[in-house]
């Protein structure tokens, strides 16, 4: 029982990162109808940037999270202005998917050139690196990851539900053309969505890197799992992204605990396919969008 509890905590920590990627993807999709497959790659890029910042400046964890969040809010805003925005004016949604795959590969290539092919990590933000709670050994870094997810969800909820900007964003998400006709600067709203997605990817990357080793070729697993989480939750739904990410992380952890790794992955994806068969729009997606 203790072992299972330990597995669940580990699965929730990894799932929190998937959830943050899925949240960013969903936010961007809502505002622009672009599925940004490169979102997971920015998590790894942010993680390695955090390693560089920590090694160069020796900043404390909170400052490290804030710095990487600001940097990647700007980076994703630039990506939107330089790549996504011009491309959406010319390319169909299918080709936009290809462009974001290209972006994913470009980030991986950039990491290989700048950081080489060695793995990078950081020490745990808090010491001791693990504690025992009710007989369950938990990495203290897990609490940082849960905290980052909670903070991101609360901030997003407050922004969307309690501010004028949030109202504008929700209107844009519902119907970008109608919002534009009502005088909303849709490009600006989308820019903000990209910035927020960048900040979330950055905090996810900085928080997960002390738990693992990351390098240039780890961009793909994050991109794929983040995308799966977003689709399972229902693209465009924040609560769905949260649920999809956590569910995927827990399923991977539990199946890995009791079955060989390759079987575990197939089983986890199999369960999620069943979810999609029962609810084609995902856990929290809108059915009419799927039919359309």
């Amino acid at each position: 029982m203790t072992g299972l509890a330990q597995t669940l905590v580990g699965g929730l920590a990894v799932g929190s990162v998937y959830a943050l990627i899925a949240l960013g993807m969903s936010l961007i999709y809502s505002m622009s109808r672009v599925i940004n497959l490169a979102q997971g790659a920015f998590v790894v890029l942010a993680a390695l940037t955090a390693v560089s910042l920590k090694n160069a400046l020796g900043v404390n964890p909170v400052l490290l999270l804030i710095m990487t969040a600001i940097i990647f809010a700007v980076v994703l805003a630039v990506v939107d202005q330089v790549v996504i925005r011009p491309a959406t004016k010319r390319a169909t949604p299918e080709r936009m998917l290809l462009i974001t795959v290209g972006l994913l590969q470009a980030v991986g290539g950039f990491l290989l050139i700048v950081y080489g092919n060695l793995p990078y990590t950081l020490k745990a933000f808090s010491q001791p690196s693990s504690v025992t709670l009710l007989g369950v050994r938990v990495a203290t870094q897990d609490f940082w990851i849960f905290g980052v997810l909670l903070l991101s969800v609360l901030a997003l909820w407050f922004l969307l539900q309690r501010t004028g900007l949030g109202l504008t964003m929700r209107a844009t998400a519902q119907d970008p053309r109608a919002a534009a006709l009502m005088g909303v600067n849709v490009d600006r709203v989308r820019l903000m969505a990209f910035s927020m997605a960048g900040a979330m990817a950055a905090m996810a990357g900085a928080a997960i890197v002390p738990l693992t080793f990351l390098q240039y070729d780890t961009v793909v697993p994050y991109a794929v799992n983040g995308f799966i989480a977003a689709v399972i939750g229902g693209l465009g739904s924040a609560t769905g992204a949260l649920a999809g990410g956590l569910l995927l992380g827990v399923l991977e952890g539990v199946f890995s605990r009791y079955t060989p790794a390759s079987t575990a992955e197939v089983l986890a994806i199999g369960v999620l396919i069943v979810v999609l068969l029962v609810r084609p729009a995902g856990l929290r997606g809108k059915v009419e969008e799927v039919r359309r």
């Binding site: 330990q6 580990g10 699965g11 920590a13 990894v14 693992t212 697993p221 890995s256 605990r257 790794a261």
Partner: peptide, 8 residues
């Protein structure tokens, strides 16, 4: 490419 191997 696993991020964690604690379950195993």
């Amino acid at each position: 490419a696993a991020v964690s191997a604690t379950a195993q």
